[in-house]
Design a protein around this nucleic acid. Structure first.
Length: 769
DNA sequence: GCCG
DNA sequence: CAGTACG
DNA sequence: CGGCCGTTACTG
């Protein structure tokens, strides 16, 4: 499997570079691309430089440490970041950190301000649509030659227009590497023009000759008779995909390369009597016979799990329900598989949201068995019996399930759905408004109903992936992770721009109070509920009357500070202070800033530091060091509170993390940042032996959704991933009697863990899910 | 909340 | 043990 | 109807 994938990728890139070489003569385009890559590069460096951030802060002289050897603290992963200072400058910021919470001491009015914005800000993740260069094949700046860009358009005006065409983020380029030839092959028709643009935005090239095309898109209405002559002129046509215009549209809608061998895409485009010839199959090579509709039908009928058990080569690489599998799509594999993401994507989908489209659009008529399921869908319109509903779902799930059970072979290669997420992109998203309201709903459920929360997030991700606005419940239902309830909400939002349930919830004072209380460190839903029911209404109430744990008291006393985001530069400055102090104690200890910082965020909720050292095999080895460090930093006044340490680790050797608060000393405060103000910050320290660094990096880099999905993926493979390593599952009998935690497979190397899991490597900045 |  | 927090 | 990450780790 490994080999196969590799081969595919190689083939893909080979092909791709060839394609790219022949297109893109367009300077503007090239320049833009170039710039894009520059930005990416810069950004990438910035994000990966975690450890040795000789931060912009004028050498953190502050804390005594005169001639201390500034520790190099090499970053484990290659990325030798360049100058952070410079990087930071370039790193785009999109949103200044939210101002501190308003006076909570006061009354309701403030509370209100507190709540709403909070739920709205949950992901201050800046937009980084420019990230993602990684896969982007090097565009050999092949000048001249075929100046032809990827469009046959002739008019200058048009060309210009096209030059401005913006490629969508890579993860949306479902057509990358494909070359479309339209019949008719012009953009005179408005609709077609739009379709062409959409296709091109998603990576397709619009070619002028049939010969160079991989896909022939025939206007709907035209029949085989109509295009016959066209096809005849090209001897290679049998190797092409010939579909009607609905095909690319559906692909766009579903954000994935669908199987073109479906009746609805090839209707009227085949020669009824002679299956083989001008047959829409896939790409060159195999294409032949088998792909006639009859064949398809047959397959559809008896699909079932057997199809799924076919060897990888015969698996569809289109993200699509197996019933549409056809035996002749192998060639496309090369492209599709490469375009497609790893299975982690799917788990991310499963775990949080966005996922793939395993489901066919319930397009108008379809033939065979499937159409029935489809019809159910259609019929259900507004008021379907819950029975129909569930049966429909069953069918769909079954497909998915089957698909998923394929994990070891192709199922993970089957979609080009989301790649490791990057942030942003939401700006111009047609569903932005819907997303925003749903996001508020998430805020309302946060800490209350975790699962529901997750469902909302999942739905949001699915919406974010759409390229066009979802306005009806029916439409929404087609998206993975969106069921009846959410679909209805989506429709409501689309219809009148508001969600009554949300507004209602927002009005409820208990919710406001609850939200307030929940933002206190150490306060969960249980405690918050108790307090609310006990009649407490303000933080002041709590401070004075409630019984608070140590941590909760700290959380309340420093509520504003702790709820304020930390700008990236400060994260670096804080880390520098710690390093500085650490240098005195043990210069060989290394620090890596994890968390959202490592993912490239321009602001963080807290600072996450991994403390590690070569040749350590247990976090215990680092304990003495940490104790000294803590003491030292506390004495310095840097650490201001301990929220969770490892005091009584009676447990087996697991003393590994320290949570607390810190304050950037004025001496470490950059002069150019205005007036100094001490702000309490949350800081998490994680002791990590070298042998566990990889796993710890994954864990501490997150984000949480990413972690959960990759862990879920691991578990589905019979493995176990936690912050200490990847383990081969050892029958863990009940009661953990198994005094073995499983055979450690890997813990040291982050990339290796990805490999072992069969997950394509993702840079930290690609782990926003 | 969704999914199997 | 439940509650909370971490990514 | 039960699962939804971690045999996570720390507090009380």
């Amino acid at each position: 499997m490994e080999e196969r994938k590799l081969a595919e990728k190689i083939a893909y890139f080979k092909r791709l570079s060839a394609i790219q070489a022949e297109e893109n003569g367009d300077d503007a385009y090239d320049a833009e691309e170039q710039a894009h890559r520059e930005r990416c590069k810069t950004f990438h460096n910035a994000t990966s430089t975690s450890s040795r951030a000789k931060s912009p802060a004028p050498s953190v002289t502050g804390l005594r440490k005169p001639g201390t050897v500034s520790q190099p603290l090499p970053c484990p992963d290659s990325s030798q970041g360049s100058d952070d200072l410079e990087i930071i400058k370039v790193t785009p910021r999109n949103r200044s950190s939210r101002p501190g919470a308003a006076g909570i001491a006061d009354k309701t009015p403030n509370v209100e301000e507190e709540i709403i914005p909070e739920s709205a800000h949950p992901d201050p993740k800046p937009a980084h649509s420019f990230l993602h260069p990684l896969l982007r094949p090097r565009m050999t700046r092949q000048t001249s030659g075929l100046t032809s860009d990827n469009s046959p358009s002739t008019s200058t005006a048009k060309r210009k227009k096209q030059a401005r065409l913006k490629l969508l983020p890579e993860n949306q380029q479902i057509f990358r590497g494909l070359r479309f030839y339209y019949i008719p092959n012009d953009d005179a028709n408005r609709v077609r023009a739009a379709q062409i643009t959409k296709a091109r935005e998603r990576g397709a090239s619009w070619v002028r000759t049939l010969k160079e095309a991989t896909h022939v898109i025939v206007d709907e209405g035209l029949t085989y008779q109509d295009i016959k002559s066209d096809l005849m002129s090209d001897s290679s046509s049998p190797g092409k995909v010939i579909v009607n215009a609905n095909y690319p549209i559906d692909c766009v809608i579903h954000r994935i390369l669908l199987n073109p061998n479906q009746e609805k895409y090839v209707r009227n485009l085949r020669v009824a009597e002679t299956p083989p010839s001008p047959n829409p199959s896939s790409l060159p090579a195999s294409a032949q016979a088998s792909s006639n509709s009859l064949e398809i039908k047959r397959k559809q009928r008896k699909r079932s799990r057997k199809d799924q058990e076919l060897p990888p080569e015969t698996q569809s690489d289109y993200g699509e329900p197996l019933q549409n599998n056809t035996p002749s799509i192998a060639p496309v594999t090369t492209i599709a598989a490469a375009l497609v993401e790893d299975e982690l994507s799917q788990y991310i989908g499963l775990v949080q949201g966005n996922s793939l489209y395993l489901e066919m659009p319930l397009e108008e008529e379809e033939d065979s068995a499937q159409s029935e399921a489809t019809k159910d869908d259609e019929a259900e319109s507004g008021s379907e019996s819950s029975k129909d509903e569930s049966s429909r779902k069953k069918k769909r799930r079954t497909r998915e399930k089957i698909q998923l059970s394929q994990e070891d072979t192709t199922w993970q290669d089957s979609f080009a759905c989301m790649k490791g997420g990057t942030r942003g992109a939401a700006v111009d998203n047609p569903n932005a408004a819907t997303i925003e309201l749903l996001q508020l709903m998430v805020g309302m459920y946060e800490h209350r109903d975790d699962w529901r929360c997750k469902s909302y997030r999942r739905a949001i991700t699915a919406l974010r992936q759409q390229t066009r606005k979802i306005t009806t419940a029916k439409e929404a239902m087609k998206l993975p992770g969106i069921g009846k309830s959410l679909a209805a909400k989506i429709e409501e939002i689309a219809a009148d721009g508001r969600l009554r349930k949300l507004e209602h919830a927002q009005q409820r004072p208990e919710n406001k109070i609850l939200n307030l209380f929940l933002k206190v460190y150490g306060v969960g839903i249980g405690q918050a509920n108790k307090w609310v029911s006990q009649g407490y209404r303000t933080l002041e109430d709590l401070r004075e009357k409630a019984k608070l744990s140590t941590n909760q008291r700290i959380g309340i006393e420093h509520f504003d500070d702790l709820n304020e985001r930390i700008p990236r530069w400060e994260v670096e400055a804080l880390a520098a202070v710690v390093r500085e102090a650490a240098g005195d104690i043990d210069a060989s200890v290394e620090f890596i800033i994890g968390g959202s910082y490592r993912r490239g965020s321009d602001s963080s909720g807290d600072i996450d530091l991994i403390i590690t050292k070569k040749r350590t095999r247990s976090s215990q080895n680092l304990l003495p060091f940490l104790e000294k460090l803590i003491k030292r930093l506390t004495d310095d006044g840097f650490l201001t509170a301990a929220l969770a340490s490892f005091s009584g680790n009676t447990k087996k050797g697991h003393g590994s993390k320290w949570h607390g608060c810190c304050v950037l000393p004025e001496t470490a405060f950059p002069k150019d940042k205005g007036k100094y103000r001490p702000i309490w910050r949350r800081i998490d320290l994680l002791l990590v032996p070298e042998t566990e660094l990889g796993a710890a990096l994954i864990y501490f880099t997150g984000n949480d959704i990413f972690n959960r999905s990759i862990r879920l993926l691991a578990s589905k493979k019979g493995l176990r991933l936690n912050q200490r390593g990847l383990f081969k599952d050892v029958l863990r009998g009940k009661r953990g009697v198994t005094y073995t935690e499983g055979d450690p497979l890997e813990g040291r190397d982050e990339k290796r863990i990805f490999e072992l899991l069969g997950v394509k490597w993702r840079e930290p900045h690609e782990r926003w899910c």
